[in-house]
């Protein structure tokens, strides 16, 4: 009798204690499947089966294997364009491969947003530990290649304290620039001979050139961007 009561009480106790506890159970590592046609974009499914749209059999999402020197389908290094740096050197984008790349599009004669974007970039750079700095490249791409000659880019870099090797300022052709902006989802429009209207977006690419993070807006908190960069270099 006594024991039964105790047991009942014990159960009651446990019941009440766990009843109050709404903690989530740890997520198990799950295997995911994807449609080989990517009918729903990059959507993955937890169960094997067929794609609800094209009815093709779902395939296992393969662990992303990146072989040395090989780039994925989503890498910006698929873009074949050639650019000119602030040191008047021609480079192809894929020469940036191997480093984490932080990228923003600006124009040097910009009176309002660009100095702030440049400041944001400097702030991000400051927060990268000294021993990791060599693994991160900070890139500013001009949306006004007509005006922004390599000389102007160099002057802008000097003015904005971007003279270390980590900083790369680029200008391309008008078409390359438009295409590059399309990849970054940066919108811009020339609104007067010297003035552009443009989106303020800072993007982070991993060592293979895949876009991993974007932050839009001026004067926004870049903590997330910085932690993403640190995560990539460590």
């Amino acid at each position: 009798m006594k024991n039964t009561l105790k047991i009942v009480l014990l159960f009651l106790l446990i019941g009440t204690l766990t009843g109050c506890n709404f903690g989530k159970s740890d997520k198990l590592e799950t295997v995911t499947y994807e449609c080989p046609m990517f009918c729903e974009g990059e959507k993955t499914y937890e169960e094997p089966g067929t794609c609800p749209i094209c009815n093709m059999d779902l395939t296992l999402v393969a662990e992303k294997e990146k072989k040395e020197g090989e780039i994925s389908d989503l890498s910006i290094y698929n873009l074949p364009s050639v650019w000119t740096t602030q040191h008047n050197e021609e480079i192809e984008l894929k020469e940036l491969q191997g480093n984490v790349v932080v990228m923003v599009m600006i124009y040097t004669s910009c009176p309002a947003a660009c100095p702030r974007l440049a400041a944001d970039m400097r702030n991000i750079e400051k927060q990268i530990p000294a021993d990791k700095k060599k693994d991160v490249t900070l890139v500013l791409v001009s949306i006004d290649p007509e005006t922004d000659t390599p000389e102007r880019l160099a002057a802008f870099a000097k003015e904005n304290l971007m003279e270390s090797n980590q900083w790369v300022l680029l200008r391309g052709t008008e078409a390359n620039t438009r295409e590059f902006a399309a990849v970054l989802a940066v919108n811009y429009k020339r609104i007067s001979p010297l003035d552009f209207s443009h989106s303020n977006i800072i993007s982070v690419f991993d060592q293979g050139g895949e876009l991993v993070h974007q932050k839009e807006g001026l004067g926004v908190n870049h903590q997330e961007t910085v932690s993403k960069i640190l995560e990539l270099v460590n």
Partner: peptide
Amino acid sequence: SNLFCGSAAV
């Protein structure tokens, strides 16, 4: 607008 620089023109 903070999203676009010079958005007065839109």
